[in-house]
């Protein structure tokens, strides 16, 4: 059981996909206009990640190495379609606000990345917990960014009015929301602050002489996403 807990700790803190690995930036920027959306997207991704990790780990000895990428993609896409139907049926409001980003979970680097680097090499139970850990880490990341943007941008927390708004007409003083934070530029600004913070932590650690693991994120070029960016179908002449 110890190994399972270690996987969850690893996903939540040590290799947090949002804050440390910087994976899956598209949904991170797009759906975090509110904390509720962040939680919804995070949990949907978690479900897909856990199920696909489980199935891929079960099939790891069956899938031939040369066609593993298309096989992984089909597995992930099937689960995404299932999750899409469930959301559409049971939480239509969330389905409407997440929109096109639900089917786009398929191309989220985190899922194919975990399938390639963990689930295809490890036993089923550990892979499930790896999926839970990574998924929760992603959910925490999205929720945190969503909270920041929601509080600054509209003074709300999970849709609840935390900061009373100012009303100029009634002469009431209060919080004036910075609307830009729930619009597109706000996403870039919040993420910029976040990566700067990460750089600061890294630089400080480097000054103290600690060895810092390089984050394999999009900032360093997407080629480092490993499994995500390689050739999906083998042509027989890759130099591997």
């Amino acid at each position: 059981m110890n190994g399972c807990m270690e996987r969850i700790y690893n996903g939540l803190i040590k290799e947090n996909p949002t804050f440390v690995l910087m994976l899956g930036m598209c949904p991170t920027l797009a759906v975090t206009t509110s904390a509720t959306n962040g939680v919804g997207m995070g949990l949907s991704t978690t479900v897909v990640l856990v199920l696909s990790n489980m199935l891929i780990s079960m099939l790891r000895k069956v899938i031939p190495d040369s066609v593993r990428m298309p096989a992984f993609i089909v597995v992930v896409a099937s689960f995404v379609t299932i999750v899409q139907f469930l959301l559409q049926g049971f939480v239509p409001s969330l389905y409407a606000s997440l929109g096109i980003y639900i089917p786009l979970i398929v191309v989220n680097c985190i899922i194919l990345g975990r399938a390639e680097s963990y689930a295809s090499k490890n036993p089923v139970l550990l892979s499930i917990f790896d999926g839970i850990g990574m998924g929760l880490g992603f959910t925490v990341g999205l929720t945190a960014i969503g909270l920041v943007r929601e509080i600054i941008g509209s003074g709300k927390v999970f849709g609840f009015q935390l900061l009373p708004l100012a009303d100029v007409a009634a002469g009431k003083s209060g919080y004036v929301p910075v609307t830009i934070f729930i619009l597109a530029p706000g996403a870039f600004l919040v993420l910029a602050g976040l990566t700067a913070l990460q750089n600061k932590v890294k630089n400080n650690a480097a000054k103290k002489g600690k060895k810092v693991r390089e984050a394999s994120g999009c900032g360093e070029g997407c080629a480092s996403c490993g499994g995500c960016s390689g050739k999906v179908f083998p042509t027989g002449n890759e130099e591997e």
Partner: peptide
């Protein structure tokens, strides 16, 4: 600034372009 080198400054540029 030291902390903003690399990705952060690019993201801020993207924010300004987005505006």
């Amino acid at each position: 600034p030291e902390s903003f080198k690399g990705t952060p400054i690019v993201l801020i540029t993207a924010a300004l372009m987005s505006i």
